[in-house]
Design a protein around this nucleic acid. Structure first.
Lengths: 256, 256
DNA sequence: AAGTGGTCTAGACCACCGG
DNA sequence: CGGTGGTCTAGACCACTTT
């Protein structure tokens, strides 16, 4: 890297903005603008420190910000280098239904279709690792945005405690909160599997869609601290209405 | 937090393992074991420092590790607290086809169906933000695992340079690398949209599946530094074979 | 006022890398 | 060997929260 770069911009030591943040933003800018390209090396830490008359620890703090952003990486004995943007790995986020819906300016609502105690059949006994016939709490509900049904959920939790079902839970019976209240253990982990499918007859009627409508199916298992399953659920998302979007690479903002 | 906790374990100052790492792992253990529960406060930094006879900066380095792991958060003037595990947000990862397939012990392969120059129709001209009829490079290929077709991809890039198509590209024409070679700009960002659908007639024949098979459709747009689209592609994943799994919360390891 | 985390300094020693 | 990043110290001052 051309040393002229780091002396061009000034640092305000008396600003309310931390020095490490100013330094980090400066390099972030250089990288986005292409003045620092992937694979290129940053100036040595001591040099940056001298240039701005600051401590090396402060420079390191700045660089650690850049590392957290994935913009650079370090190599002991060699230097700090600008990372290659990875454009082929993707992560799709599926957030909370209420938040997501509200963000889009729609009104979320949920309708409880049924709550009851059921005995575990073969599938459920395997999913929850309990003997056949064990008592389980069953919930089914529909989530809607502006009164258009979008998601159909079925949830099961181990029902060891004889606690009454609270009003609150009927409003938003999330699998993890159900497991806390009615299960025996504290949930700590959750596994979700997403696959594409076609709505079953039951699902077409609940979601008010035609036959052969594509859907996302998300299967969720909630585990306690001992890695034992305490809850299991299946959510069916309308594939024609629901999309998962993901942005990757640098400066992923402001696209749309 | 009970102060006894932090004096129970010993720290080896002369170990090759950094002190900050030992401290971080200690608290990580307490949190996973439930000795430190969500919402509880950690001892003040100066107290931890005194207890182990180390510098406060080293303690802060340890805590910053815990923050990066999402296990704790800090509040100025108040303290450091154990986070609530968020079990309702999910991120699904869709990695590189070759890596993913190899990891599962299968043999990945790709078959190029066609490469040619096409003129942009309405859809393509909108996606790539070019005038109707602009020359574009078109690729279509099938990705298979153990000779079973799993993904059908179609890709288009702006074709400004008159470069010859290289052998290498035929093997793995990823959208971003195509854009580098044949487009006018350097790609920096990518947007992907995932939705559920049903295989079209063309797709059923290419993927060798029945009619009405559910599929994932991933639409990818690659942008250059000026946020202008340089490439666009559509990948169709067999929904019956392809699953996206996600683990969330604490200690998500070792489930299966 | 007392206690907390946030920032910063000016050193130090180490392990690793290259010539 | 000199240069690099990795760790650590023993202080300091600040802004914020609570009492």
């Amino acid at each position: 890297m051309d040393n002229k770069l780091i002396s061009q911009l000034k640092i305000d030591k008396n600003s309310v903005i931390p020095i490490y943040y100013q330094i980090a933003k400066m390099f972030e800018g250089y990288i986005y603008e292409g003045k620092l390209k992937p694979g290129e090396v940053l100036p040595p830490e001591h040099e940056i420190a001298e240039n701005f008359g600051i401590s090396r620890m402060t420079v390191r703090r700045a660089i650690s910000e850049l590392i957290n952003l994935g913009l650079v990486f370090t190599q002991k004995g060699k230097g700090t280098f600008v990372s290659e943007p990875k454009l082929n790995d993707v992560t799709f986020e599926l957030g909370d239904f209420y938040e997501e819906t509200s963000k889009k300016g729609m009104t979320p609502s949920s309708t409880l279709l049924g709550v009851r105690i059921v005995r575990a059949n073969k599938t459920l006994s395997e999913k929850l690792a309990v003997p056949l016939g064990t008592s389980c709490l069953y919930f089914s509900l529909v989530l809607a945005a502006d009164n258009e049904p979008l998601v159909y959920e079925k949830k099961y939790v181990k029902y060891t405690k004889q606690k009454p079902i609270l009003e609150v839970e009927l409003k938003d019976p999330s699998l993890s909160s159900l497991a806390v209240t009615h299960g025996s253990h504290f949930p700590t982990t959750s596994k979700r599997v997403l696959h594409a499918s076609i709505a079953t007859k039951e699902e077409t009627s609940v979601l008010e869609v035609k036959e052969n409508t594509p859907v996302f199916v998300v299967e969720q298992t909630v585990y306690d601290a001992e890695k034992k399953p305490v809850g299991w659920g299946k959510s069916v998302y309308r594939g024609d209405r629901y999309k998962l979007t993901s942005y990757i690479g640098w400066s992923a903002n402001n696209i749309k």
